[in-house]
Design a protein around this nucleic acid. Structure first.
Lengths: 307, 307
DNA sequence: ACCTGAACACCGTTCAAGT
DNA sequence: ACCTGAACACCGTTCAAGT
């Protein structure tokens, strides 16, 4: 109804329409603009300024071009964001056997100067299909943990990813490859097929939400120019005397005197342990049920025995 | 750096500053504007037009007032959104024993005409402290399921809640009451205290992510004027011939011929079952470990026995 | 104490026009 | 085929001014 960026119907998704600019051979490129280059600049700008700091006009300025040139390569701002979303999803390193051959790897030129930037982040440097990880695990639990960790890393590296994932359908090739991989891993758990989507949702939504918060916290620290531990302490002391904060304070007290990072890593790992243990428990109970079928009446619902 | 709504530092949160307008007695109210009324109108507008459809100018028009009048009651758009966020959080019905006495219940005037609007939604009608639920469960598992279901309902009813929750610190009284309640419930599971935050994160982030997607799907359907099942079929057929969609298609095939709603309810319930089973398993393994401590060397990590 | 009007510095996008 | 400039209909927010 209004103008803005609303109503992202599946019909309007970039991934459901033909690629623009048939790239007629022999046509000269006056300014050297390019969809790839535009998306790369978008990711860069998004990393630097955040989602609210991004605008078509700023992007055009970054590209040394007038505001409206971009619109020749892209129909709309939302479409461009959708493209950037999938580009970032491509940075998630998947277990090799789950890699889709049609997958677009993170282009080397996507973020050339970001590569050696600020620490362990930076665009995955030419992640070919050769064993990227020290040891490629074959156990589904380790695969799941690895996938979750990879996903978390990318989500924290690009904090603008989370809001975009919530807004779009997320059907680009890289997103698809990721969810196919996640699916394959969960399937390997032996869980009955009709329950795989639940387990998948549990794990992926947890990783998504957890990483979203972590990313936002990091952004805030960067903005205020302080460390995560400093901001954490600040929030803690600011809020110490509020009576309705009792529960949380008590919980944090059990964490001991570790850094925010350690705390988070422990939380993340343990939450995954819970999910994995739950999957195993329900898989085993389903197994038991099918094994003992028709032998005796038993409760099929309650998966775990009471102590 | 730019203008916009960025950098939501904890210092700038509404909840960390004194309430505006000391409400000096005897002062007349020329137009009858009011913080409560403004927040109520905000929620209404947000429900009707979505986050991108909301603007200070639209809101002012809705209130029959000039654009800038609102700024006497509220410092900034973000602050107003934070207020609306907490107001909506107040609609989540909590288990009675966990209700904070200082909690602000959803005001009756928050959405008078929305009450009898479009079905099972609408603002919770005068949810007092008397037993709102048919049977108030005392088992932590049922309490957790109930809390998750309540949270899901509100998140789907107000699809703009999700993005706001991801953007703000979420420390209003109603948000606090909710997280305290969730915490108390998980604590009742008997999980060792230092692991409660992980379990909490697993469950709440799952509910958040799941409901976010459900809400967005519903919005899309409303915008296009079709049912959820119709949209689902449409997406399915649109995407059927894409080779990278194999996994998901196969997964959906196992769901049988149920409606999208049924599918989702099953997925939601089962994911909770997994989380609960996982919590129980790790709680039991921790119990075993402390019981058998120093008696014999055993693996403390693996919580479930292999079949 | 409460509200208005005009103004500033931004948006996304269209459209006619240039080369 | 590719890019520009001007224009339209919006934003959030400030600030001086009204009552």
């Amino acid at each position: 109804m209004a103008t803005g960026s609303r109503a992202i119907s599946p019909r309007s998704s970039v991934w459901l329409s033909e690629p623009k600019t048939p790239r007629r051979k022999g046509a000269q490129q006056p300014v050297g603009l390019d969809r790839l280059k535009i998306v790369a600049a978008t990711v860069r700008l998004l990393d630097a300024e955040g989602l609210t700091g991004f605008s078509m006009r700023r992007l055009a300025a970054e590209l040394g071009v007038t505001a409206m040139s971009v619109y020749w390569y892209v129909d709309t701002k939302d479409q461009l964001l959708e493209l950037a979303l999938d580009a970032a999803m491509g940075e998630i390193v998947l277990p090799i056997e789950a890699v889709d051959p049609g997958r677009v790897p993170p282009a080397a030129e996507v973020a050339p100067e970001a590569a050696g930037a600020d620490g362990p982040a930076g665009a995955a440097p030419a992640a070919g299909a050769e064993g990227h990880h020290p040891a490629e695990p074959r156990d589904w639990r380790d695969q799941l943990r690895q996938l979750a960790t990879e996903c978390r890393k990318v989500l924290v590296r690009h904090p603008w990813l989370s809001p975009l994932m919530g807004e779009f359908l997320n059907m680009g090739p890289n997103s698809m490859a990721f969810s196919n991989a996640a699916q394959a891993v969960v399937r390997n758990s032996g869980l009955p097929l009709e329950k795989v989507s639940s387990a998948l949702a549990l794990v992926t939504q947890f990783v998504y939400g957890f990483s979203t918060i972590e990313g936002r916290f990091a952004v805030r620290c960067r903005e205020e120019g302080i460390t995560q531990d400093e901001l954490f302490d600040e929030v803690m002391t600011t809020v110490k005397d509020r009576p309705d904060f009792d529960g949380a304070r008590e919980l944090f007290a059990t964490q001991g005197d570790v850094s925010v990072d350690e705390m988070r890593n422990r939380d993340f790992a343990f939450a995954l342990d819970i999910a994995i243990a739950g999957i195993e428990a329900l898989r085993d109970s389903a197994l038991r049920d099918t094994t003992l079928r028709d032998s005796a009446p038993r409760d099929t619902a309650s998966p775990t025995r009471e102590s």
